[in-house]
Computed example of a mutant assay.
Amino acid sequence: MINPCKISDGGVEYILGTFDGEKAVYDFPKILEFFERKGRELFGGHFRIYPADHEILHKLCNYAIRDPVNCEKYGLDPNKGLLLSGPVGCGKTTLMKLLRHLVPHQRKYEVIPCRNIVFGFNHVGYKTIEDYGNNSFICFDDMGVEPAGRYYGKDCNVIGEIMLSRYELFLSNKVKTHATTNLNADEMEERYGSRVRSRMRHLFNLIAFDSETPDKRK
């Protein structure tokens, strides 16, 4: 039987809580310790978890482990994806890259910059939209600031079209989509239109950093 609270990573075993064979009870301080170590491995020795981010991380972790009490408390639906928003440099991408390691028995998502997807579209065309509108688990990183899509002189809102495809996948196969963005709701609607914005409300749980969160890269 898989113990979801036990993670073996790089030859090191982490015990993040207790498991009685039926119910897993996670210890948040132990999760933070795991993230600190994993973060240094992935991003370098300068990495640290900031106390100001603990509330955001608590929401993300309870979503990932599908804790029913805290998901209800925070208004999170574990069957939907995540839209993590916040100002430039607050750590959105970093946290999404860390989160996928928390529950290793779940299917991992790829973190892919939206600008790379648009560059692919500009090179090979509409096959790119088909490729990302499939059953893969993806976190679309930096959504909303990608360049315009253009193929043979024809403009296309590439990420908006992909979101419409992902919405259909969510309805038919419950395929999750995650994303990070610097934009607020009004800016997202201006960028992608009301139709895509409406679909995104069904696709995502919104978790937002405070707008005054400083740029950690400075």
Rank of each mutant, 00 (worst) to 15 (best):
residue 21 G to I: 04
residue 168 E to P: 00
residue 188 M to N: 04
residue 65 I to A: 12
residue 165 S to L: 08
residue 13 E to D: 15
residue 126 Y to T: 09
residue 31 I to A: 09
residue 57 L to H: 03
residue 6 K to Y: 03
residue 38 K to Q: 11
residue 146 E to V: 11
residue 173 N to V: 05
residue 36 E to V: 12
residue 75 G to Q: 01
residue 111 V to A: 13
residue 201 R to I: 08
residue 112 I to P: 03
residue 108 K to I: 06
residue 178 H to R: 01
residue 215 D to Q: 09
residue 160 G to V: 11
residue 211 S to P: 00
residue 151 Y to V: 05
residue 93 T to P: 01
residue 71 C to G: 07
residue 205 N to K: 09
residue 183 L to T: 09
residue 128 T to V: 08
residue 120 G to I: 01
residue 52 A to D: 10
residue 63 Y to Q: 11
residue 90 C to E: 07
residue 212 E to I: 05
residue 62 N to V: 04
residue 143 M to W: 10
residue 131 D to V: 10
residue 199 R to N: 15
residue 7 I to V: 12
residue 21 G to P: 06
residue 12 V to E: 12
residue 90 C to A: 15
residue 84 L to Q: 08
residue 110 E to C: 05
residue 13 E to R: 06
residue 84 L to I: 11
residue 208 A to D: 03
residue 17 G to T: 02
residue 146 E to W: 11
residue 16 L to I: 05
residue 218 K to D: 05
residue 19 F to H: 13
residue 46 H to V: 06
residue 11 G to Y: 02
residue 210 D to F: 01
residue 119 F to P: 00
residue 83 L to K: 12
residue 43 F to N: 10
residue 62 N to C: 11
residue 199 R to I: 13
residue 196 V to C: 05
residue 95 L to W: 07
residue 183 L to G: 08
residue 92 K to Q: 05
